[in-house]
Design a protein around this nucleic acid. Structure first.
Length: 161
DNA sequence: CAATAGATCATCT
DNA sequence: GATGATCTATTGC
């Protein structure tokens, strides 16, 4: 679950961004001022502004300087639903990366924070039931042939085998 | 219900 | 000057 203050939700949809070799990943452009937090330590947050008006919340997953992360795409609201409704002003609370940041009041100030302590936390929650987990290929990526086969973490570094 | 336009701005060319 | 890991309102069936 993702928790910020009095509001929280169970993470039910994510998207992986694999690092500098992933053309869809912000790290593909190299280390810039904007992607500084993306290249931070694993277990920290990377929050960026998209389309000039919505924030997107990521968990950094790779070693320092690598630049891989998981985007939180959707939550199932748990705590502080009333507060979320007030912030969102509609019935759709957390079913989208931009929406959930509004509902949990996450913005650019929350980049680069460790996620194992307040104010922003990712914690264990009741997992979804068997048969309710799906993995799908990403769409909109034209350079899939350039992707690496597979990477592993060894000694806190990414290796290809 | 599906498709589309518009909002709005940091970052990069 | 163009673009984008989005969302909302509006239009057209």
């Amino acid at each position: 679950m993702l928790e910020h203050g009095r509001t929280s939700g169970r993470i039910v949809e994510t998207e992986a961004y694999l690092g500098p070799h992933d053309p869809a990943c912000h790290a593909a452009a190299g280390l810039t001022n904007r992607t500084r937090d993306l290249h931070g330590p694993p277990g920290t947050s990377y929050v960026y502004l998209i389309y000039g008006m919505y924030w997107c919340m990521n968990c950094v997953t790779g070693p320092v300087g690598y630049g891989s992360a998981v985007l939180i795409r959707a939550l199932e609201p748990l705590d502080g639903v009333d507060l979320m409704r007030r912030r969102r002003g509609g019935s759709d609370l957390t079913n989208g990366p931009g929406k959930l940041c509004v509902a949990l009041a996450i913005d650019g100030r929350h980049g680069g924070l460790p996620l194992n302590r307040p104010p922003l936390m990712v914690r264990a929650a009741e997992p979804v039931s068997d048969g309710n987990v799906a993995i799908s290929a990403r769409i909109g990526i034209t350079k899939a042939a350039d992707w690496p086969q597979r990477y592993y973490i060894r000694d806190n570094k990414w290796v290809s085998k």
